Simulated scan of single mutants.
Amino acid sequence: MNEHLVRIKKLAIAVLSIILMTYGCASLVMSQVMFQTFYRRGSPELQSKLNMTKKAFISLLICILNFVSPSSIRISTDNATLAKGTFRKSNGKIISQMKRRSIIIANHQIYTDWVFLWWLTSTADLAGSIYIMLKKSLESIPLLGYGMRNFKFIFLSRKWAQDKIILHNSLGVIDANSRGVGPLSGARPIRVDDDGEMYWDVNKTDDSKAWPYCLLLFPEGTNLSATTRRKSASFAEKVGRQPFSHVLLPHSTGLRSSLILLRASVEVVYDITIGYSGVGRSDYGEMMYRLPNIFLRGQTPKLVDMHIRAFNLAEIPVDDEEAFSQWLYEVWKEKDDLMEKYYTDGTFASDPELNQIVVGGFNISPKPVLVTCLLPAVLVFSLLLVGYLAYAWLT
């Protein structure tokens, strides 16, 4: 009988979660439409409102995940590259002092890695300033695709001839806005090439009009699985590299291009190694923590580990393609070693002198989602009320 009740409870939670997710996404899209109706296109006011819907989306997702099955976060930082106190606890929550213009790179284990990394930006109140590189096919998802286009997420087809212009223009605008001389400040590109590539003045800045950003990308290109491990090993043999045991071989083109395009503004590259409780050395996280398992079975990692270190652009050989490829390979080799330690010891941290550890809940303020989800409801109610009063007056 108890087992029957547990199943009913899980089913009820799953159904309610799906309803909340659907309503929440529909409300966010309606809010975006409202904002685009009432605010001038390309204006800072509109961008602020759209950034609020970014915060609302991750707030909605995290609130639902905590409702399904709560998780905790353990962050360890490299004291040699990040000052102690960069991540700390305050009033029971993890907060941070992440830089206002940064790139995050990470290993890719499960489809929802980006959720935890997006949460990380919220610790520095940057959840509305994140930009994620995604597969082009995700742009076609009903509701979510439209919402993500308004988030200015970057959709790539993995065909460099097509992606080159998209990446150039998208990151060019982000860079210019972050220096206060982009379209959000009313400025125009200094030139546009015949192929449509836009160029902005990299020598100008106006901090009073600057917008922060955090660009998230996964150099591996896909998450770790039996199939992608085989493909990665074949790719490693093709390029004369030694394959890794716990991560995939990274691709350097996208990251190097991003660093070159953002070099006028980017302050730091955060290198994050992520691991999940319950995933063993021979397991694949993407099989354990698939979306159906999360929402229908409440199967989420109880503890998410992130090891964070930082690189300044001056440390990265961006201008030399071969040297950059070798640098990225070495970074991923160290990441593979960290994963080996994680599977052996259950943690990334080793020495308090070398690492600082902060543990807290996977939580976020629900305020953004409450505001944006209530706006469409208030508008619909107001329209119905006006319609009823007009009908009553006419009859």
Results as ranks from 00 to 15, higher is better:
residue 53 T to G: 01
residue 383 L to W: 10
residue 230 R to E: 14
residue 90 S to R: 13
residue 34 M to H: 02
residue 55 K to R: 14
residue 12 A to K: 05
residue 367 K to E: 08
residue 315 E to D: 15
residue 393 W to C: 12
residue 252 S to F: 10
residue 382 S to K: 03
residue 212 P to D: 06
residue 16 L to W: 10
residue 45 E to W: 06
residue 386 V to A: 15
residue 79 N to C: 15
residue 146 Y to S: 11
residue 331 V to F: 01
residue 298 G to Y: 08
residue 383 L to G: 07
residue 16 L to N: 01
residue 244 F to V: 03
residue 373 C to Q: 11
residue 319 D to Q: 12
residue 36 Q to E: 14
residue 220 E to Q: 13
residue 59 S to K: 12
residue 190 I to H: 11
residue 150 N to E: 02
residue 300 T to Q: 13
residue 185 S to N: 08
residue 60 L to M: 14
residue 9 K to E: 13
residue 370 L to F: 08
residue 314 A to P: 00
residue 80 A to W: 05
residue 180 G to F: 02
residue 115 V to G: 01
residue 388 Y to G: 02
residue 103 I to D: 01
residue 83 A to S: 14
residue 212 P to F: 08
residue 226 A to Y: 05
residue 307 H to W: 11
residue 220 E to N: 04
residue 98 M to E: 11
residue 76 S to D: 05
residue 321 E to A: 14
residue 313 L to I: 15
residue 140 S to T: 15
residue 253 T to Q: 14
residue 345 D to K: 14
residue 52 M to A: 07
residue 114 W to T: 05
residue 70 P to T: 10
residue 34 M to S: 06
residue 304 V to P: 01
residue 203 N to Q: 13
residue 101 R to M: 05
residue 106 A to P: 02
residue 281 R to T: 09
residue 73 I to Q: 08
residue 192 V to L: 01
residue 15 V to I: 13
residue 219 P to S: 10
residue 26 A to C: 10
residue 42 G to I: 05
residue 82 L to F: 11
residue 57 F to A: 13
residue 24 G to C: 04
residue 55 K to A: 11
residue 239 V to S: 08
residue 260 I to V: 11
residue 29 V to D: 04
residue 343 Y to E: 03
